[in-house]
Write a protein that binds this DNA or RNA. Structure first.
Length: 452
RNA sequence: GUGGUUAUAGCUCAGUCGGUUAGAGCGUCGGAUUGUGGUUCCGAAGGUCGCGGGUUCGAGCCCCGUUUUCCACCCCA
């Protein structure tokens, strides 16, 4: 006999865990709909050509690839096999992969369904994604993302709405968070000012780590990427910016005075901060220049949300991407979106134990009986209760009473309806309150009253 | 992908210096109690010690490989 197991980085969810997860999903969904977003779904697998090259070199490695059906090695030459070049071979034996996020499949969806969509298109999507990452705390190989995106609108009002959604979702979930915000245009401007526009990716990836490894190590890392000492020297004051958001922006405006794109980034952020103030967004918003985010398709605002009371990677993230649909042949469609990491939110909620009392999803009443005749007697009662919308079940065989009562106990069922000869003769059931232990002969009306 | 770490009953974990028949708690099942659950008491079932190889008279324990767990990188939700 083999021991059953599931793949690395995947999880089963028990009924109790599903109740908790559904609480998260429905909270998020409710807020999405409140802002006029509509749901779509896309397939678990996409053509590999849709996914490859969208997440950088690292991302390509983390894609789960699906081998072709049938005898997929058949068309290969001996030379190709002997070469042992995995990257080259994979293209010959695999043409599908599991989706890595929801944003790229969404861009594909927009291009493919443009005739059915009117812009601006506001969609949400809650589905699992898969990454061949090495699992760790808060990091899984299969996890759910809850994405909201608007495409076909350049307005910064969209950024505001996304921030309001974050604000509302975490208020409802009772998680204290801070929203970190940055702008890719400002990062481009900085690279431009120090004369290293070509190396912007390396620079942003490195400065992203400043909190973790410190200024010195970051400087080292940037230098190792072949960036000049002169440029690094110019970078120093920018990395050490401090003060309020407004103070930081004022300082940045001076530094970026000669960079058109940099100033554009600053003014975008000013607008967003202004809008948030007007709309009285409660969540703390922090300009964080070190926030870079690896995904290289972002072009404007970049967001990240961190829980304050728990040690955990970011639980929500996103940004603006000006031309994601361009690679699929549809130019000039700008989008902005964020992704709630349901599994990390789930972990945070578990650690803080912030779940509401849930009783509604549970069975309300269990029928306990002693024989075939009693079972038959109960069936109409069950139907009647269910037609009133009451969750009811029956222990499906005449087991020992102790066993039936324990079953009710374990499932936290608040009422038991006990049925034997006496009850059948009276045309009633013995209704027992499992909490107080009280019981009485009851009619259907009595039951409905007790459960109300 | 790199480095470390872990694996013993369904679950959580003991297991001495390498020494005879591998233990506990919880859970499950049965009984005390044939119409009353949570508490209590008694009993039972349940193990190829992750897997494969090696060292040894002898391996749960030592060595090698492999898989898995968790952690730090990398990257990210």
């Amino acid at each position: 006999m083999q021991k059953p197991s599931i793949p690395k980085g995947t999880r089963d969810f028990t009924p109790q865990e599903m109740v908790n997860r559904n609480y998260i999903f429905s909270t998020i969904k409710d807020v999405f709909r409140l802002y006029g977003f509509q749901q779509i779904e896309t397939p678990a697998m996409e053509n590999l050509s849709t996914l490859m090259g969208k997440y950088g070199e690292e991302g390509d490695k983390l894609l789960f690839k699906i081998t072709n059906s049938g005898d997929f090695m058949n068309g290969l030459t001996d030379e190709e096999l002997l070469e042992r070049n995995s990257a080259k071979l994979i293209n010959k034996i695999s043409e599908k992969g599991l989706r890595y996020d929801l944003t790229v499949p969404f861009a594909r969806f927009v291009v493919q369904n443009r005739d059915k969509i009117s812009f601006p298109f506001k969609r949400y999507q809650i589905q699992p994604v898969w990454r061949a990452d090495r699992p760790q705390r808060g990091r899984y190989r299969e996890f759910y993302q809850c994405d909201v995106d608007v495409v076909g609108s350049d307005s910064l009002l969209n950024e505001l709405e996304l921030i309001q959604i974050v604000d509302e979702v975490f208020r409802r979930l009772k998680i204290n968070v801070v929203i970190k915000i940055n702008n890719r245009k400002m990062l481009s401007g900085i690279a431009e000012i120090i004369g290293e526009s070509d190396n912007i990716t390396d620079i942003t990836v490195a400065i992203d780590k400043i909190d973790k490894i410190g200024l010195e190590k970051v400087t080292e890392e940037i230098a190792s990427k072949g960036i000049s000492q002169e440029a690094i020297a110019k970078l120093q004051p920018i990395l050490q910016l401090s003060g309020t958001n407004a103070e930081k922006l004022t300082e940045l405006k001076k530094v970026l005075a000669d960079s058109e794109i940099g100033l554009k980034g600053v003014s975008e952020l000013e607008t967003i901060f202004g809008l948030c103030q007007t709309m009285q967004v409660e969540t703390k918003i922090e300009l964080d220049l070190t926030l870079a985010r690896g995904l290289n398709y972002y072009t404007g605002a970049i967001f990240e949300v961190k829980a304050i009371d728990v040690e955990m990677g970011s639980i929500t993230g996103g940004g603006r991407y000006d031309n994601l649909t361009g690679v699929f042949g549809m130019e000039g469609v700008s989008g902005v979106g964020i992704s709630f990491g349901a599994d990390r939110i789930y972990d945070v909620l578990n650690q803080l134990n912030l779940y509401p009392e849930n009783t509604l999803e549970n069975t309300q009443i269990l029928f306990v009986s002693f024989g075939e005749k009693e079972l038959m007697y109960c069936l109409p009662w069950l139907s009647a209760l269910r037609s009133k919308g009451i969750n009811a079940e029956i222990y499906p065989e005449p087991a020992k009473m102790k066993k039936q009562m324990s079953y009710a106990d374990n499932k936290c069922i608040p009422f038991a309806a006990i049925v034997g000869e006496t009850e059948m003769n009276a045309g009633k059931v013995m209704l027992k309150n499992m909490k107080t232990g009280e019981q009485k002969l009851a009619t259907m009306e009595d039951i409905l009253e007790s459960l109300a």
